[in-house]
C-alpha cells in the first residue's frame, strides 16, 4: 500500500521538477552561472496597464543584462515599497508626494521622463451636462446637480491625488465629497479596472489619457472634459536613496533612469501605441516651462 503513496509523492515531485524545467525554459533556456542581478521597480498602474513597461522591459534587460522586476501599484503603495526598501526605483505621477519622498530622504532625485494629460470621461449622454467645462467647474456641477455618478480610484494613487486636488481647487473639502452621496463611488482599483467599472455603471471618472486610449475599445465612455491646466500629468522616475534605505541596487537603478531619459528610448515612449491607437499615449520628457 505504501508503495502507492510513494508513487503519488514521486508524481508530485516529478510534476514540480517538470514545472521547474518549464519555468527555466520560459525564462530563456541556458543562463550564465552567476544568476543575473535583479532590479525591482514599482510603477504606477497607468504605465503598466497601457503596456508601456511591458514594451520597455525587454529592451532594458537586454541592454544591461539584468532581470527587471516590474511591480504595478498605485503611487501611494509604490512609494511605501520604496520607503521599506522592497524596490530599487519608482516611476510614479504625483508631484507633491514625490517631492515629499525626496525631502524625507528616501528618494535621490525626481527625474520627469514623460507626460500626458488627465481627462474626465463619462457616458456619451453626459447626464450632468459638464461637457467642455473646466475641470473644477465640472466637478462643482457634478456635486451640486446630483445627475450622474462618479467613480473615484479611492486608492491613494497619483490619479486619486489629482482628483483630490481638483476638488480642493473647486472649493470642496474632500471628506465632504466622500460623504456626498451614493453617486460618489470609491472603486479602490487600478486605472484600467476603474475605467471598466465606470463604463459598466455609466459613470464619470478621472483618467490619464494613455490608459483611456488603451482601454477605449472596451469602454462606453467618451472624453467629457479635456482642457484645463490642472489636468497635466507628469511621470517621473526616482531611485531609492541607498543612504537612507540600505540594500538598494543604486547603480542599476541609475542605469534605469538614464535608460528612460536616453534619446532613443524617449523617442520610443513618444511613439508608443501611436500606430495601434491612432494617437500619442505619452509625450516624452517634462513639460516646457515647469521644472
Amino acid at each position: 500500500m505504501s508503495k502507492i503513496i510513494y508513487r503519488f509523492l514521486g508524481l508530485l515531485v516529478l510534476i514540480t521538477m517538470l514545472a521547474g524545467l518549464g519555468g527555466c525554459a520560459g525564462a530563456g533556456g541556458v543562463e550564465p552561472l552567476p544568476p543575473k542581478q535583479r532590479l525591482r521597480v514599482a510603477t504606477t498602474t497607468s504605465l503598466y496597464d497601457t503596456g508601456l513597461w511591458g514594451y520597455l522591459e525587454p529592451m532594458f534587460e537586454k541592454q544591461y543584462g539584468v532581470e527587471l522586476d516590474v511591480i504595478y501599484a498605485g503611487t501611494g503603495i509604490a512609494l511605501e515599497f520604496g520607503r521599506r526598501g522592497d524596490v530599487d526605483a519608482i516611476t510614479v505621477h504625483d508631484r507633491a508626494a514625490e517631492e515629499k519622498f525626496i525631502a524625507d530622504g528616501y528618494g535621490v532625485k525626481r527625474v520627469p521622463f514623460a507626460h500626458n494629460y488627465f481627462l474626465i470621461v463619462g457616458p456619451p449622454a453626459d447626464p450632468a451636462g459638464i461637457k467642455g467645462l473646466e475641470p473644477e467647474a465640472a466637478f462643482k456641477k457634478l456635486i451640486e446637480s446630483w445627475k450622474g455618478s462618479f467613480v473615484s480610484r479611492g486608492d491613494n494613487s497619483g490619479t486619486h491625488a489629482k482628483e483630490k486636488s481638483i476638488w480642493k481647487k473647486a472649493g470642496y473639502d474632500y471628506e465632504a465629497v466622500q460623504k456626498a452621496g451614493a453617486w460618489y463611488i470609491e472603486g479602490g482599483k487600478g486605472m484600467g479596472p476603474t475605467l471598466l467599472m465606470a463604463s459598466e455603471k455609466q459613470a464619470y471618472t478621472l483618467t490619464d489619457i494613455g490608459t483611456y486610449v488603451f482601454y477605449k475599445s472596451k469602454l462606453e465612455l467618451v472624453p467629457i472634459v479635456d482642457k484645463g491646466e490642472t489636468l497635466l500629468n507628469v511621470y517621473s522616475a526616482m531611485a531609492v536613496n541607498p543612504a537612507k534605505v540600505p540594500g538598494v541596487n543604486i547603480d542599476m537603478a541609475n542605469n534605469l533612469i538614464s535608460f528612460l531619459i536616453s534619446p532613443a528610448i524617449q523617442k520610443l515612449i513618444g511613439s508608443y501605441g501611436v500606430k495601434e491607437y491612432g494617437m500619442q499615449l505619452f509625450v516624452p520628457g517634462d513639460v516646457a516651462g515647469t521644472k
Binding site: T16, L18, A19, A25, G26, A27
Partner: peptide
C-alpha cells in the same frame, strides 16, 4: 502556449512546494 505553460508550471511548483 509557452507563457501559459510557464505560469501554470510556476503555480504548480509553488503550491506543491508549499503543500509538502
Amino acid at each position: 502556449d509557452p507563457e501559459v505553460m510557464e505560469i501554470a508550471g510556476r503555480s504548480l511548483m509553488i503550491s506543491v512546494t508549499s503543500a509538502l
